[in-house]
Design a protein around this nucleic acid. Structure first.
Lengths: 224, 224
DNA sequence: CCAAAAGTGTTCAAGCTACACCCATGC
DNA sequence: GCATGGGTGTAGCTTGAACACTTTTGG
């Protein structure tokens, strides 16, 4: 049996949550949109294959990545029985922009505008979105999508995008600060407003320490 | 590459949370304790393989089962490169008792008394325990471990076992009732006390409807 | 009548929701 | 000087935690 990995890669540009897709360069389904994937080599762990694939496409390593699940219907690939292990990755879209590998004709798509994908990749994306919501309601993983310095309005927009809700900025700010994960900087981002919004950095030590604690950023979402 | 499934099977006998293991009947590692597993056949989805394997061992079908993750280190099986997809299953231990298939020399082990297992199966069990805690803090899956009629002290013991904590019965009862998942019966279980404890059944409709909602049975556990 | 488990209520603290106004600045 | 987005505080309510006594009945 062939074993592949497919990566569901999320990015955030400050306004919208996006997905990185490639235009498939070979048959079957040549020129259709697809997730970035590759086969697990004989000397490789599946997670190493996923990191390798991600690095090939984006040039990035040490990216937040998590195993999602296995897709294994006997006929999911029409040519040959192939099992796919999916991984979802969260990357800072700005870091990536410079390193884009043009060989793959990759593009970012807003989540609402994702085209239909080959094989069972649509289902993979659905599952990844769900998992992202589930996980981000409990753990501070969305910081992985942000640049080193970010503002509170930015994070709030991110949460609003992920959950497709509108949040109250007073309550959100209070809750966010109460996590103790943020370090306020003295400079401001003035791109999005005249007054400017203070930058924050993530307190890495607190992040590591509190990662596995319950956070409850979003109350009573529907969980999968 | 060979692809196998391995099942982490949990059961509850009213007092202790248990794990079902088999004594391996073939080389390598013959006569060592192991999870029940099997290879994914060419016409089979992995989840079907898992159900099949579970049915072979226990005679049960329509069991609560969930994909856990993939274990894929190149050398995890010393003979041949084998990928394993793990599933965890929750079964009512009483239903099972009658149907035990003796071919596999299976035994239930209390979680604290699980022997060391072949290959990376120890790690699989660890992961399954963690996932069980995570999931059961948010969703009412532990009912899958109980018989059709059960008492509140039984469920409470089950939660105490899963999380290795002591709970307050007044608070627990109130929280449990507030879920609207239980239907009180008029008869009592008199096996465990003279006064007897009322039986309850699960309200199947409410269970299905509320499954994906946040429940928060356990406050602030450490999540994985 | 007594031992053993089942069942039940109240008080306090913390956290969540809803909600409206002032601030700083570029144009 | 005004439009735009950033930033802050309070009151009411809900939820969770802590805690002790009464009930039932088999032996």
């Amino acid at each position: 049996m062939l074993v592949a990995v497919d990566c569901i890669i999320f990015g955030f540009d400050g306004y919208n949550l996006k997905l990185l897709l490639i235009k498939r360069g070979f048959e079957p389904e040549k020129n259709k949109w697809s997730l970035m994937g590759g086969f697990v080599q004989s000397n490789e762990k599946p997670e190493d294959a996923a990191s390798r694939v991600l690095r090939q496409l984006t040039g990035l390593k040490d990216v937040y990545m998590e195993q999602l699940s296995v897709f294994g219907k006997p006929d999911r690939d029409p040519l040959e029985r192939t099992l796919s292990i999916t991984y979802f990755a969260l990357i800072d879209i700005k870091k990536y922009e410079k390193q884009l590998n043009d060989d793959y004709r990759a593009e970012w798509f807003q989540l609402e505008r994702v085209p239909s994908l080959i094989f069972d990749h649509d289902e993979m994306v659905q599952q990844a979105k769900q998992k992202l919501r589930y996980k981000a309601a409990l753990h501070p993983i969305l910081f992985e999508l942000l640049p080193e310095k970010f503002t509170i309005p930015q994070i709030m927009t991110l949460y609003e995008q992920v959950y497709e809700v509108e949040l109250d900025k007073r309550n959100f700010t209070r809750k966010l600060r109460s996590t103790g994960l943020l370090i306020k900087q003295s400079d401001k981002d003035k791109e999005n407003s005249k007054k400017g919004a203070f930058y924050y950095k993530l307190d890495k030590a607190a992040y590591t320490e509190k990662f596995t604690r319950f956070l409850n950023f979003i109350s009573n979402p529907e969980y999968e």
